[in-house]
Design a protein around this nucleic acid. Structure first.
Length: 472
RNA sequence: GUCCCGUUCGUCUAGCCAGGUCUAGGACACAGGGUUUUCAUCCCUGCAACAGGGGUUCGAAUCCCCUACGGGACGCCA
């Protein structure tokens, strides 16, 4: 048996001191939010330590492993900004990175187990042979008399949970009767041959880890460091976050126009914290501050409201260029704005700090682009409840029509002068009807800058049309 | 059923490893108030937790034990 299974020469010190982590998803056609967080933690750890992030596709069997399923995964990873140093498309020295292409390697390793007397065939399948005293016992769970083995307990030194001791007690299948190697075997063989130093994965694998330790030892390979991260539970009700349902897939958030970094920031906080009160991070800050020791032991519940809040905050922190880059396709998709240009830029600049999500942006800005906006009935009701808005509107129309240069200063002056002429100190009495007549709503960006952006023609024509339109 | 992991406000969490600085801090949510042309933003205030019981100690959210509850694993799925 060769001590080092890598195909290339190496310097043990330089390789082993380098952190190598992997994300090893099975392409199922969706990208589960829990998987995404596991990927993120691995990615953050690699980037934090200057290590290598490997993407390995566990496509051992399954009819569902299609190209489309793989693409969902890869595009999800790309969308989140989790780039991989080795794996599909980028290659690497430890490939292939698809388990479906590593069959020969697995055979080689299975052979090693046979040679070492640690594997045997039974019912057409290959079993891993545990070492220790054998006995039979009625098992309540399997409802049958089964053979068990008193093995040496395995000690797992987990970076999050500390020392975990557990003994495996049944020989387990490593190759199915159809010839396909099972997860536990390929997972360990790949981790060994890919030189993985840290296995960061969900807590649902903690119990499996004793099987993996048995295998590592049988192969004479050193154990990697383990870090079992807590599960994400359903936001309400029992159990871990289910496979179906709203908001469990990364693709859904992309479709709903969440900021990838909003999701990333939220996911990072689900089970990890920076040991201080900071909650909003840039990617760089996340990379800098992320550490295994900051990971929580207990499971966490997914809270959409907090996600929404973080998403909103990250939208506000976006540089104008990035915001525009994201917003324009959203507006185009919604059919709100079709052309790029300085008008859209001005509108977006006005609205970035007011909008709560990209998804609501089209509705929020629709009236800037289309005369056929809808008048909010409730806001209209409130407006007509007191005063004589139509009279005020006429006064504003006259005042604005007389403005020579259509800019914030002149508009401000027009309103102030109008107020003064009526013995008012502030022009607030004229604001609500002005806003409503041009936008159909009672809220939105600051009025004067908004009028400036909309331009004289649009503003005056909407005011002119308002009385008739509102009746209808 | 067996084994493993966990348990601080409704939720995410700080504090726990190195017991006193904790009348337990922050954030989301919620409630109230203020600012504002704006059912936006922003600001202020409030609400609300150490699962329970034993022990160790002058002193325990922090250490130990038990119980309860939650999660996970026990597949020729990954």
């Amino acid at each position: 048996m060769t001590a080092w299974p890598f195909s290339k020469p190496y310097n043990p010190l330089s390789v082993m001191s380098q952190v190598r982590v992997r994300f090893a998803p099975s392409p199922t056609g969706t990208f589960h939010i829990g998987s995404a967080r596991t990927a993120l933690f691995n990615w953050l750890y690699a980037r934090h330590t200057g290590g290598t992030f490997v993407l390995r596709v566990e496509d051992t069997d399954h009819e569902r492993n299609t190209d489309e399923a793989l693409e969902v995964l890869l595009s999800g990873m790309r969308w989140l900004g989790l780039d991989w140093d080795e794996g599909p498309e980028v290659g690497g020295d430890f490939g292939p990175y698809f388990q479906s292409q590593r069959g020969e390697l697995y055979k080689e390793y299975i052979q090693k187990l046979f040679v070492a007397g640690r594997a045997y065939e039974k019912d057409g399948a290959v079993f891993f042979k545990l070492e220790g005293e054998r006995y039979t016992e009625y098992d309540e769970y399997h409802k049958a008399e089964i053979e068990k083995v008193r093995t040496e307990p395995q000690e797992i030194d987990d970076a999050i949970r500390g020392k975990v001791v557990r003994a495996e007690e049944r020989d387990f299948v490593i190759v199915r009767s159809n010839g396909e190697p099972v997860f536990h075997l390929v997972n360990v063989v790949d981790d060994i041959t890919m030189g993985i130093t840290h296995v960061i994965r969900g807590e649902d694998h903690l119990s499996n880890t004793t099987k993996h330790c048995e295998l590592f030892k049988a192969f004479g390979a050193p154990l990697p460091h383990f870090a079992h991260i807590p599960m994400i539970l359903n936001s309400s009700g029992p159990g871990k976050m289910s496979k179906r349902g709203d908001g469990v897939h990364v693709e859904d958030y992309e479709k709903r126009h969440f900021l990838p970094h909003g999701l990333v920031n939220f996911l990072a906080l689900l089970g990890w914290n920076a040991k201080d009160d900071q909650e909003l991070f840039s990617l760089d800050e996340l990379v800098e501050k992320f550490d295994l020791s900051g990971i929580q032991k207990g499971n966490a519940r997914f809270d959409e409201k907090k996600l929404a809040h973080i998403n909103t905050e990250q939208i506000r922190r976006l540089p104008m260029d990035s915001f525009r880059e994201m917003a324009i396709p959203v507006l185009q998709e919604a059919g709100v704005a079709t052309e790029d240009g300085s008008y859209i830029d001005a509108v977006l600049k006005l609205c970035q700090e007011k909008t709560r999500s990209m998804a609501e942006l089209p509705d929020f800005v629709a009236y800037f682009f289309d005369d056929a906006f809808i008048f909010d009935p409730k806001a209209g009701e409130r407006l007509f409840k007191k005063g004589e808005p139509l009279e005020r509107l006429k006064e504003v129309q006259a005042a604005l029509a007389a403005v020579e240069t259509w800019d914030v200063d002149s508009l401000n002056k027009a309103f102030t002068d109008l107020a003064a002429s009526q013995g008012q100190e502030k022009p607030f009495a004229w604001f609500p009807v002005t806003r409503y007549s041009v936008s159909g709503t009672s809220g939105g960006p600051d009025l004067i800058p908004m009028l400036e952006v909309m331009g004289r023609d649009l503003v005056l024509s909407r005011m002119e049309a308002f009385p008739a339109r509102y009746q209808a």
